[in-house]
């Protein structure tokens, strides 16, 4: 997915350069402060997943429209899917922290498996109204071709990102059990 200002590059172990590049792009899109920090950490976690569990081979792409800055992190392994997202904060283990953080830090977090690849999509609203939601006229538009995929969607609560609640809906596959049995 590349929009008017889309960029894509392969993932490698230079995470400092990746964060710097992402910082520049998000700052140009108008993001600042804590929300920019949140996006950097969330994307960093998605990229770690590719390096650690996704075969190390993947791509990162950034695009923006009037509503969202969108970062897609795609791996070639395709193991990750929506059932891996913890619905509660992981305790007693550090596994799952990355996915948990992504779900808490971004306005929208989805995982889709497409043709043997897993794609993590992290989105931040570019212009939040005082209630934290996008203004009605800015959320219209083409929902995109991906709506039929199983998706887990996470939106921040109005107050702030730290208080985000997880709202998971599934439009495909079977509902996951908490234990992922």
């Amino acid at each position: 997915m590349t929009g008017d200002h889309g960029q894509q590059w392969p993932i490698d172990e230079d995470l400092t350069a990746l964060r710097e590049r992402l910082f520049q792009h998000a700052a140009q899109a108008g993001m600042r402060g804590e929300r920019l920090d949140d996006l950097l950490l969330a994307v960093n976690e998605a990229v770690i997943n590719v390096l650690e569990h996704g075969g190390g081979d993947g791509t990162l792409s950034i695009s923006q429209d009037d509503t969202y800055l969108t970062v897609d992190v795609t791996d070639a392994a395709g193991h990750l899917d929506v059932r891996h997202i913890p619905r509660k904060r992981p305790t007693g283990t550090v596994r799952g922290f990355g996915l948990w953080l992504m779900s808490q830090l971004c306005d929208e977090f989805t995982i889709q498996r497409i043709a043997g690849r897993s794609r993590v999509r992290l989105r931040m609203l570019l212009h939040r109204s005082p209630t934290g939601a996008a203004s009605p006229d800015s959320v219209s538009g083409d929902p995109g071709p991906d709506e039929s995929w199983a998706r887990s969607e996470v939106r921040s609560s109005p107050a702030n990102g730290a208080g985000a609640h997880v709202d998971i809906t599934h439009s495909g596959g079977t509902a996951p059990s908490p234990q992922q049995s």
């Binding site: 920090d37 949140d38 904060r89 922290f97 948990w100 953080l101 830090l105 730290a162």
Partner: peptide
């Protein structure tokens, strides 16, 4: 720093 505080807070 604030971003680290948030990380420790979110992970509990």
């Amino acid at each position: 720093q604030p971003r680290l505080e948030k990380l420790f807070h979110l992970t509990g």
